[in-house]
Amino acid sequence: MGELTFVDVCSGAGGLALGLEQAGFAPRLLLDEDAQTVTTLKSNRPEWNVLHTDLLDFDPQDHTESHDVDLLAAGLPRVKSSATAGRVDSGVEERLLEATVYLAHAIRPRAVLIENVPELFRSDDHLAFRDFAHKELDHLGYELVWLVVDAVDFGVPQRRKHGIMVALERASAGRFRAPEPTVAEPTTVGAALGPSMGVRGWPDAARWAAQADQPAPTLVGGSKNRGGADLGPTRAKQKWATMGVNAHTVADRVPGPDFVWNPDLGRDHMVKLTVEQAALIQGFPPEWRIEGLKTARYRQVGHATPPPVAAALGRAIAEALNGDPAVPAAG
């Protein structure tokens, strides 16, 4: 069998697409409605076919390269709980979920991958979508698998749970196995960021890294409608503070040789992460460039699917599509 191919919708900064590429898939088409993320994608992979459009406006009949692919992938904007359902933009995320399922109707990939929050696949708030997806995709001949994975199990220095839906044609569905963890021990923030903290000659980089001896809490990208970049809600900020990190803002650059790190003296004496370091916490390789101004760049990072998670899922899907039929379990 030749190279596996995919279409990626709501591509963002490219975390899902990059991971799938690492798993051996070749992109036929990526699309996103945000001009800045499209710039990021084209900057890193000029050869990728990237379309600047909203998924809700996308017509696959105008883009035949999206047809006859092995995988339709979607790292969609995070759905909200019922507690926030009354906001102005309520329902946008749900419409994008439905649009992804309808796109599967149109292009008929051999597999569909949707990544979102765990609550989408286990909360009663989203039972209507699960019923819709099952009905529509079962009718097309797919079998669905719902699972939750944690990015920390795949070498990402961050505890970040993902709700995953995988739909496979019935001929392949029995061969799918959820990806197993790829690391025996979590990667810590200090291990991931220690070298970068010292590039400007900060003498306390190693001492700070030793204290940052745990994975990060989940990075949160935030909304375009709210203020500047920070690393997450109150509880996450408190967790960052135990590692000597000021999570209330994002830095323009790492500490220099004169920076005094003393968390007991308050935020001003804690380190701040840069956008590039946040990208490392998300599992992006150092060479992956995030384009735009600082806040927009951070939001791209915070909203991304960690590439190592996408790679693990991609390998599991590839094995199901390419592998021999599963042997029934004994007994």
Rank of each mutant, 00 (worst) to 15 (best):
K80W: 12
V271C: 04
L280R: 12
V69I: 15
D268K: 12
T274S: 02
L113T: 09
I164P: 08
V189W: 03
G201W: 09
A111L: 01
A296Y: 03
R315Q: 11
V220L: 12
E185W: 09
F121V: 15
I164Q: 04
V254L: 06
V189K: 11
E33C: 12
V79D: 03
R45T: 05
N246Q: 08
E136A: 15
A106F: 08
S90F: 10
P307H: 02
A106L: 13
R78W: 11
L193A: 01
L29D: 09
L147V: 10
P217W: 06
N246P: 01
R177D: 08
K80C: 12
A151F: 09
Y298Q: 03
A74E: 01
A191F: 02
A279T: 10
F259I: 11
L71E: 03
A304S: 15
Q211P: 00
P233V: 12
P27N: 05
K42A: 14
E276K: 05
W240M: 15
D32S: 08
S196Y: 03
P186Y: 10
L18G: 03
R253Q: 15
L30F: 12
T100I: 05
P179K: 04
A26Q: 15
T305P: 00
V254I: 11
V101F: 02
P325C: 02
H52N: 15
E115A: 10
R122T: 06
L313S: 01
D204R: 12
P257C: 05
S43H: 15
E94D: 13
F121D: 02
H248C: 05
P308M: 07
P109T: 05
H139D: 09
D89R: 09
P77T: 10
N246F: 11
L72K: 04
H52C: 13
E185C: 09
R95Q: 14
Q158I: 14
E287P: 07
P118R: 10
K135Y: 11
A210N: 05
T242C: 07
G91F: 04
R207N: 12
F154P: 06
E98C: 13
V7W: 04
P257E: 06
L29H: 12
N262F: 05
A184V: 13
R289H: 14
R122D: 04
V327G: 01
F284P: 08
R122S: 04
V245K: 11
G244I: 13
P109W: 01
E94G: 09
E94V: 11
R299A: 08
A192D: 05
